[in-house]
Write a protein that binds this DNA or RNA. Sequence first.
DNA 1: TAGATTGTTAATCGATTAACAATC
DNA 2: TAGATTGTTAATCGATTAACAATC
Lengths: 204, 204
Amino acid sequence: MESAERINRLLNYKTFLYQLRSLGFIKVFSDNIADALGISASLVRKDFGVFGIVGSQKGGYEIEKILEKIQEILGKDTVQKIIIVGVGRIGTALLEYKKGFDKEGIKIVAGFDIDPATIDPEAEIPVYSTSLLYDYIQDNHIQFAIVSVPESAAQQTLETLKAAHIYGILNFTTLRLKNTEETIISNINIEHELSRLIYFVKNR
Amino acid sequence: MESAERINRLLNYKTFLYQLRSLGFIKVFSDNIADALGISASLVRKDFGVFGIVGSQKGGYEIEKILEKIQEILGKDTVQKIIIVGVGRIGTALLEYKKGFDKEGIKIVAGFDIDPATIDPEAEIPVYSTSLLYDYIQDNHIQFAIVSVPESAAQQTLETLKAAHIYGILNFTTLRLKNTEETIISNINIEHELSRLIYFVKNR
DNA sequence: TAGATTGTTAATCGATTAACAATC
DNA sequence: TAGATTGTTAATCGATTAACAATC
């Protein structure tokens, strides 16, 4: 399996190459990509080598071919169903990503919340009571969840998800849980991001 | 300057030690921290060495002392003023972090939006017209901004912020900009985070 | 003292870069 | 052909780990 850093770069290549393509570009050199992303051309070619992306000494790499390969590596041929647990401000904001997610084969299929005022099983993306969470995951073979509940509900929510044998969690709460044998947890901590940014500005 | 990874761990130490302290713990061994965070005890001690955190061979490290040192390293003695550009769903969600941010010496002082219905200069955290953005930064010596505008406004917003010589940007748009001489940009791309999570689950 | 933990050094590991032959 | 770029190898760099003397 490739390192997290390499996969990050792969996603950055993808984003950049989509932009280039939309400008009408057909081909690209490792040098161009390196400059745009602020990394070395060696690293770009090394990554491409690892991922089996080949170019030619004449015109570099075909953007279309790179993008196809990247989508294949990322497994974008199959749609992944995701649920959002906690449909507060952040959860609702994420629902707005729907269009962008759909394009990438990521489908938000349902939300869960304890607030009766938020529950709406008839909505385009239905929002159910959190009490149905465990059964919903089982019945619909859900593998991924975004957790955006308040701090106080975090522990309970994460434990229910683990108990339901979910495979991957994107965790927006500040509770920091380790991966288990079955479940990979990816933590997004906005306060940490800000603190880090401030640190690097101060020590620049 | 320390590596981004070391600073990340520092923030994780902080979060974990706050938890421990709230449980009544006074001291901690490098081993405990390592287990909790899933890293090696060597690395914990190495980090502590680098940051000048010392313990004793008897009772390990004093939690209070570690936390003080970390706050000092992160420069939490001075309050940092931050603005939010784009007060849509995500921007509003971030305003809700206020309490947690305040505690960490991060103060959101204003929001900016183009939508007249969102503008409210009398609110607890005032929201101004984006047309005032540049002057506000100058007049109030703002160093940090969170950008949560829609895709279509991203380029323009980021350029205004750079022109105003802002020092640090936390960027929630999918536009990926490089750091400049003056401005450090930290990109949060939720679609990338999800794609990466899915990749690692599939290739686990 | 015996046992346990820190602090630090040297060894290891892995990721990035430099360099260049092969190729177009 | 001359010039430029890929693909790949070896060298470098930096981060992590193992090991252990010093210390309590």
